[in-house]
Amino acid sequence: MTTIFGIPLQALLGQLLIGLINGSFYALLSLGLAIIFGLLRVINFAHGAQYMLGAFIAWLLLAHFGIGYWPALILAPLLVGLIGAIIECTMLRRLYSLDPLYGLLFTFGLALTIEGTFRYLYGASGQPYATPALLTGGANLGFMFLPIYRGWAIVFSLFICIGTWLLIEKTKLGSYLRAATENPVLVQSFGINVPLLLTLTYGLGATLAALAGVLAAPIYQVSPLMGSNIIIVVFAVVVVGGMGSIMGAIVTGYLLGVAEGLTKVFYPEASNIVIFVIMAIVLLLRPAGLFGRDA
């Protein structure tokens, strides 16, 4: 059997694929963060909580209303997006004129409040969420047994990432958004409702986080801690990709997922710090991040 550094090639391929699956969650989450930071200049620490909310709403819909995975995949993100929009309108908006630190502290407090509430209500152990019937089972790829649901997670997140990138970079609405953050006064004077655009942006970021949450529910337990477990890694992804760079967030998400996967084969003890080591190296060599433009 062919081996690379003592690891059979087949096992390596399996680990690469698993890295890509985890990477797709990193990509989806860092995408939302990058959009919010890039357009609003807000460091959204509540992103993990919004991811957790997405998963929890999907679980609540199933447990209390019998609404299954597919409707929840649309309903839960929309609901969280709406909550995000309300938060932006009523609270976050007041902080734009202040130092970005205030936005960070506000969203951090928000995250702690939301997570604390859910932990109080539902405990720290996760709630089980069954894989939808259509996507159960797995396929033998020869080098590994791939659960169909995980395959779906890669395809779906790739689709959403590309779709969001096109929306912001290639559509008229996207160009308004970008313009509104570049020079809000000028854009407003053209008769475009800038505050509404900003609300939509924050709502979109929250929606993306919740979408990742619903996607994660059948794989991980639906737990109040799921957001805080992943959020720090996602921040590292955004920093490595270049703060605010949307394409950077997506590509780095997948890349770091793979890097983490490979570490789990060669030196598992380091698997939860490898991303931060990479972050430190990137910051030393390219402070603006891999895809960032130097300010």
Partner: peptide
């Protein structure tokens, strides 16, 4: 050996 509070075990399970 996996770190405390690991969310994804797939890589370890594959091994």
């Amino acid at each position: 050996r996996h770190p405390l509070a690991t969310t994804d075990f797939s890589s370890f399970l594959l091994q």
